[in-house]
Design a protein around this nucleic acid. Sequence first.
DNA 1: AGTACCACCTGACGGC
DNA 2: TGCCGTCAGGTGGTAC
Length: 261
Amino acid sequence: MPELPDIAVLKIYLDATSLHKEIEDVEVKHVKILQDISSRSLVRELKGKRFERSLRHGKYLFVELNQGPWVSLHFGMTGSLEYHKRNRDAPQYTRVAFVFSQNYELAYISKRLLGAVSLSDSPEEFIERHGLGPDALDLDLQRFKRLLDGRRGGIKSALMNQELMAGIGNVYSDEILFQAGVMPVAKVQALDEERIETLYDSMQTVLTTAIEHKANPSQFPETFLTPQRTEAARCPRCGGPIRKKQVSQRAAYFCPHCQQG
DNA sequence: AGTACCACCTGACGGC
DNA sequence: TGCCGTCAGGTGGTAC
């Protein structure tokens, strides 16, 4: 479920395992995962260098090398990281392996190959080039209001629009709307100022709470909708049935009793 | 400006 | 058991 909280957890993991170690080799196991760069260039740029620090913006993780470009990691719908000792059973679907000394490596894993590994001059340059909005957790209420002001479309697609704000995907947009008591089909224009503020508060609370629980839905508070993303589920607040509906081309889960507008 | 649709990929699941 | 359609949390391009 790689949305903002998941990437935040991957950042903690990468920082704890893979910084300040010489990259002895880079193994590209599937070139389709590389974006705008060849295998050879990636290896040449990274070999002998070290990861010094990482930054997260939206659903992207950027890793700074001790000199040269930044590595940018995007995880698509099925991506992850795993640091492990190299042996005969490497993780399945490892697409790129960053190899350190003593036979340890950081594996970039992507089952469906929808993610991307690339290089950029800086996170700022990458964010600009991709037209990403501000990070959803680095957004104050006033700016949130300005971003939504005058928008004609639905609230769910606005929350998921990476050009507007970066980091929220299908699952967390549903959770934020549920916590705020707003229907996924609600139009932005139909929300008064108070509900926009509630939405903002829910966004901050949901994202930070998810990160605190390692982005693992099975550990989320009982008041959360996310673990109930099945059609037979019950609303954690009122006990009524959870409904599923296509909204903005995605499967939205919501409680018709607790969410309005 | 905002939305619909398709494409990119692979795997899981249910129906037959 | 095998085949087939459908669906899955990502982004990006095109057409309206």
